[in-house]
Every structure is written in C-alpha cells, then in structure tokens.
Design a protein around this nucleic acid. Structure first.
Length: 679
DNA sequence: CGTAGAACGTCGC
DNA sequence: CGTTCTACG
C-alpha cells in the first residue's frame, strides 16, 4: 500500500530522469515490482504451476537495460513478513485466493479473457519465484540480496550506507524510510522520475519547510501506512497540517484527544512501534554478513523488539537466497520436490531437448538458462553485439560461465568492489555502513526554506550527495565520476555522449546467434545511433527544440485540443514559445501536460501531469518512424508506440503554471484519443 | 476541500 | 502497487 497519495503530492520535486544519467552508478532495485509486472504476462501459467520464464525474462531485460547504461544493479528481494504486516498480508492472500477461484471458474466457463484478469489478480510472487530469478542472477553475476524482512528497509540501508547511489522502486514507502534518492516509475526505456530527499523542502503542494525527517515520517504514519491504519478521516493533508503545527506525534495525539477526537488507547503505542519499525527494521549488512538494524537502536528503547523482525541466526543463508525467507527451509538445487520450480525445470528440460537438441547438461539450471535465452532471443535485440563481454558491472572475479558456488555468491552479494570504492576522504565524512547507518531521524531540519540547495546543505545532505565522490567504478573513466552527481545537471549530458561505454550484454541473451540478418544489424545500428546519439544529443532536427526543453527542465505545456484528430505522422510542433529558462524550473514539472507514445500505456504510472513531456519517448514522437524501429530493434514491444500518440488531457489543462517561465507548445496536432478509452 | 472507497491498469499476446 | 473517479462529510 505504501503511503497513500504521497507521491502525487510530491510531484513538484519529482524530476524526470533517464537512467543513462546514472552511468557508473550502483542502484538497488525493488525486485518485487519487476517480478510482479513481469508475472502479469504469464499469470495463468504461474498460478497453475505451468512452465514459463516470461517474468524472468522481463526482469533480465531490465537488468540488462541497466547494465547497458553502465549501471550496476543490486536486486533486492523481500524476505519474511513483519509481524505488524501479517494482518494485511492475510487479507491480500485471501483476495488472491478468491481471484484464483474466480479465474478457474471463468476458465471452465470458457471465458478466457475474464479468467486472465482474475489470474493476474491472483499471482503471488512467492519465494520460489524469486528463487528462480536468483538462479539466473547468480549465473549472470548480477548482485542481489534477499532482505531479512522488507526490501524497502534493505534498499534504504543500501542507499544510506552508500552502497548504492539510488533506489529503483514503485513504492512510496521508501520516502518515509528516509531513502535519499529514489527513482520511481522506471519504464522499459529507462525513463523514470527521480526523487531526492534533499529537494523536499522545495515541494509546492505541501510545504516541508522546517520539517525534520522525523516529522516527515510521523506525518506519513499519521496518514496511514502499512504498519498502522490511520484514524478515521485522517489523510495526508491533515496529517501534514497537524505535524506542522505540533511537530511531533505525541503532541498531535494529545491535541486530538483534547479536541474530543476519539483515539484508540493503543494508538499511541502502535504509533511508536510503527516509527521504530521504519527507523530500525532489521536489514542485512552485506559487508559484514550480519543482520543489523537500519539505524542503530537507542538504548532507552524497550526490550521487546520482535516487531522489528525477530533475529534469525541464518541471516546469511536468507540473504543469499539459499533459504526460504519465510519458512527458513533450504531452497537449494534440484532436489526440491514440492514446489512448481522443480516442475518448471523438468518441463524446461524437455523443451530444451526438443528445441535445441543440446548435449546433456550438467545441471538443470544451465538447461533452464538455455531455454530462457531461446525464449528471449526472439524478443530481445541487444543494442550492440559484443562477442565476448562479460559484464564489467558486477563481479569481476568470477567467470560468467562458471558455476557459482555458495561461497562465490557471498562475495557477489558483498560486491567487494563497492566497499573498496569508499575512498578514505569520503569515509572521513561519510559514516561507515556498519556503525553509522544513520538515517537521520534526528531532529535535524530537512533543509532551510531557502532555495540554494547546493550550498546550504546540512551535513547530512552533504552526505547524501557524496556518492559522486565515493562511488564510482574503478574500471570506468573519470568523467563518469561526475555523471553520478550530475543526474540532474543538464550541461553534463554532453560529456556523457563522448563517453559511451561498452554495452554490457548479459550472457543471459548471448546464446543468440550473432547477426541473424542484415535488417537486424541495420536496426541495431539505427538504434544505437538514436538511443545513444540522437535521443541524447538530439542530432535530428525535430527534437532539437525539445532537447532544450528537456535539459533545461523547462515546463512545456500544450494546449487542450482534445477534439483534434489523431495525427501521428509528420509530427512537428506548430508553434513554440520559449520563455526564459533556468534550472529552477526543473521543479516546476508539475504542470507537464504532454502525453507521449507509450505514455498512454504508462498513464497509470504517475498522475496525468508529470514528466511526460521530458521523456525520451517524447522525443521519439517527433520522429516516430525511427523510434519505432529503434524500439523494435531493442526487442521491446513497439506495439502501441505508433498506435498511441499524444492524448490531450481532457481537463486540468489550464494555465496553471506556478511561475511564468515555461515553454508553451502547441501540440494540437498530436492530439490523440486513446484507442481503448470508451467514448 | 479532504478523505474513503471502488474501479481499473500494470504486461504482452 | 499505483492512479482516477466518485460519494460523502
């Protein structure tokens, strides 16, 4: 559930970002959301225990997308359920069960469409599914870690302890957790919106001036979170107002009681537990192979801390995916007879033999792997073929083709090169993970209301900005160092272009024969050009104006011409009026009003009004033809790119800009009525 | 105006 | 999980 309605209220500090801006960085990935999305396309198979690898493929595609852009991903998996959340989880399980029953009923009635919908609602990302992915990740030398409890806390730990520069997730919970840098809504092109904790005080919808992290956290809990239902009638706005006025939850509750608002007697106690759960949840420290608290426990806290997650002495086994995080039973190898994984593997084995006539494999995993790549190669076209590229992004010590033992896995999780990246000078001002996972839940003020974000930063925020110095890959060029920090800095994009790195291609898809045909090659080079050059550097004319818009962060607006007919050909802006631009306006992204290709598909993602205009896919719209071929050459579905164009928002299109400086564009010719919208 | 709840989409064929 | 729409106070 996350924090309901939090993200929409923070949209003014959400900045569009393409992951290429994270070149050389290390990111933690909320694997659940990827697995879940990937599972939608094969939910029936998963529910029925039939063999499928589409969800795995989906995740691997995204892993490869990250690696393609020189980003090192650490995939984080959910672990055991927290006691506080078990109630909610039971509910969800029940809903899933109901949907499964409904699906089977629809299926027997021949109503496959309805059945599929129900199957989708019934999919559960079980540990065994996660384990399937982990097997592939091992094979691919992709870093991963299974959180002892919530992936959110684990990812926050990784971010706060500077092991990653950013977190990719869909879950707004990362914000109350205090994660310094989050990328939401990353799509299959690598485009998403970035949240940085340090920008929070610039938010427009709600003013967070004078807010501490503690206050923000309490506000979130007060408005209702996974650990504590909100009081009736309490939402984000009221919680914000109350916290702003009283600065702490106990005073808020006193005030509420004084004003004859009925507050359950246990509420205060539960609230305290919720706060502590956010602050001190148990996570796995990959550097010491120990379970630690997200931030260290103050001494004056009670002794019964089991709600933070009981302490299992098998943390390592769980983190490495060898043990089921819930049942704590081994998940290893081929001798699992109970879950569908073994069925899957057996079936796959058959398929592989049939399709490939492969020699006898050493283990089932290898065969699974071949099967997967067979599947994948039909869909996936790597940007550029490099015959023999082992990924530089992760383990440099182990050969990709070697079977990875448990011991290797440990080092893989630890990602030793990261530790070595903590340069002495940084360490001096950046606390080490083990003792200093200070998520800053102190009374420190978030930031002064003034706008000079870069200069007047509290030490903590400086800390959060440090990765630019502390984390980079040794094997990569110097400029990359700057790139991390420059994620929001437009001017540095130029540097990046000269800096295109070798495309990392996972061996997951490398079984595909090279250069299947000329067309492929053409498309690939086209794609390379477009993606690497055109789309970034805007070498083609149509998008040139948009480049400025994008990189200067100007707000573009388009008039409402929803009655205009669909026109995806010859897309060129009729009129453009540019105003004075400044980087400040990056934060005015709240009034973005353009929908783009695929944005229709992504529409559910993020309100109707953020960031669409600045997306690369918008640029693509200006040269739809090329983009479509680009995308298809990437192996991503291009369906919809053409069919769905821009859609004029039906409402909320007025001149609602907060400041006058924006680029106004008449996009009337892009007007598009989405195909699947009924009247 | 803000909250609560229902409906619907997520992917990809 | 999110967003969007709607009803209700």
């Amino acid at each position: 559930m996350g924090i309901q309605g939090l993200l929409p209220l923070l949209k003014s500090v959400m900045v569009p970002i393409h992951i290429k801006d994270l070149d050389g960085c290390c990111v933690a990935v909320d694997t659940y959301s990827w697995l879940h999305k990937g599972a939608l396309s094969c939910s029936k198979e998963l529910c029925k225990g039939l063999p499928t690898v589409r969800h795995i493929d989906y995740c691997m595609h995204r892993v490869n997308l990250l690696r393609h852009y020189g980003i090192k991903p650490i995939l984080v998996f959910d672990g055991d359920l927290l006691p506080m959340k078990s109630e909610q989880e039971k509910k969800r399980a029940r809903v899933r069960k109901e949907n499964l029953a409904r699906a089977i009923e629809h299926d027997s009635n021949g109503n496959t469409a309805a059945a599929y919908e129900c199957y989708q609602k019934a999919v559960d990302i079980s540990p065994s599914i996660a384990h399937e992915l982990i097997q592939v990740l091992k094979q691919e030398n992709v870093c991963y870690v299974v959180a002892p409890y919530e992936a959110d806390a684990q990812m926050t730990f990784l971010a706060v302890s500077q092991q990653v520069n950013a977190v990719i997730t869909e879950d707004s919970d990362l914000i109350p957790f205090g994660c310094p840098r989050i990328i939401f809504k990353m799509d299959k092109f690598g485009q998403g919106v970035e949240f940085q904790y340090s920008r929070l005080q610039q938010n427009k919808e709600l003013s967070f001036s004078g807010f501490t992290k503690q206050m923000l956290l309490e506000m979130c809990i007060l408005s209702g979170c996974d650990y504590l239902q909100s009081l009736p009638g309490m939402g984000l706005k009221r919680a914000h107002a109350l916290i702003k006025r009283f600065t702490s939850y106990d005073k808020v509750i006193k005030h509420l009681r004084y004003n004859t608002v009925s507050v359950p007697p246990l509420y205060e106690e539960l609230f305290k537990k919720a706060v502590l759960t956010f602050q001190h949840q148990r996570v796995y420290d990959t550097l010491t192979n120990e379970m630690v608290h997200l931030s260290s426990i103050p001494e004056n806290i009670g002794d019964d801390l089991d709600f933070l997650g009981p302490y299992p002495d098998i943390a390592k086994g769980i983190a490495e995916g060898e043990l089921d995080p819930i049942t704590k039973m081994p998940l290893m190898g081929e001798n699992i007879g109970v879950n569908r994984k073994s069925q899957l593997k057996n079936v796959d084995l058959g398929s592989v033999k049939k399709k490939l006539d492969l020699p006898v494999q050493k283990n089932l995993l290898t065969q699974y792997f071949c099967f997967a790549s067979l599947e994948a190669k039909r869909k996936y076209r790597a940007p550029r073929m490099s015959p023999n590229h082992s990924s530089p992004s992760c383990n440099t010590s182990a050969s990709p083709n070697e079977h990875i033992s448990a011991e290797d896995t440990a080092s893989k999780i630890n990602c030793p090169e990261i530790a070595s990246l903590l340069q002495p000078e940084t360490v001096a001002c950046v606390p080490l993970p083990s003792d200093s996972v200070d998520t800053g839940f102190s009374t420190e003020v978030l930031e002064s209301p003034s706008h000079d974000v870069e200069e007047t930063r509290t030490p903590e925020h400086t800390l959060l900005q440090q990765p630019k110095h502390s984390i980079h890959k040794p094997c990569q060029t110097l400029q990359k160092e700057q790139e991390c920090k420059a994620a929001t800095n437009a001017t540095e994009d130029k540097i990046r272009a000269e800096n295109r790195k070798v495309i990392v291609r996972s061996s997951y898809f490398q079984h595909k024969p090279r250069n299947e045909n000329n067309e492929d090659e053409k498309q690939k080079s086209l794609m390379k050009d477009n993606l690497s050059s055109n789309m970034c550097e805007n070498t083609f004319l149509e998008s040139a104006p948009f480049k400025d818009g994008y990189f200067n962060g100007q707000v573009m607006k388009r008039k409402d011409h929803s009655n205009n007919s669909l026109q995806t050909e010859s897309v060129k802006p009729k009129k453009m009026r540019a105003n004075a631009s400044s980087l400040e306006n990056v934060h005015s992204a709240s009034n973005l009003r353009t929908k783009s290709t695929d944005e229709k598909a992504d529409e559910g993602k993020f309100g109707s009004n953020i960031s669409h205009i600045e997306r690369y896919s918008d640029i693509a719209e200006k040269s739809m033809e090329r983009f479509v071929s680009v995308i298809s050459s990437f192996g991503f579905s291009s369906s919809g790119s053409r069919a769905s164009g821009l859609r004029a928002p039906l409402k909320d299109v007025g001149n609602t800009n907060n400041n006058g400086s924006f680029v106004e564009v008449d996009f009337s010719q892009f007007a598009y009525i989405p195909k699947n919208r009924k009247t």
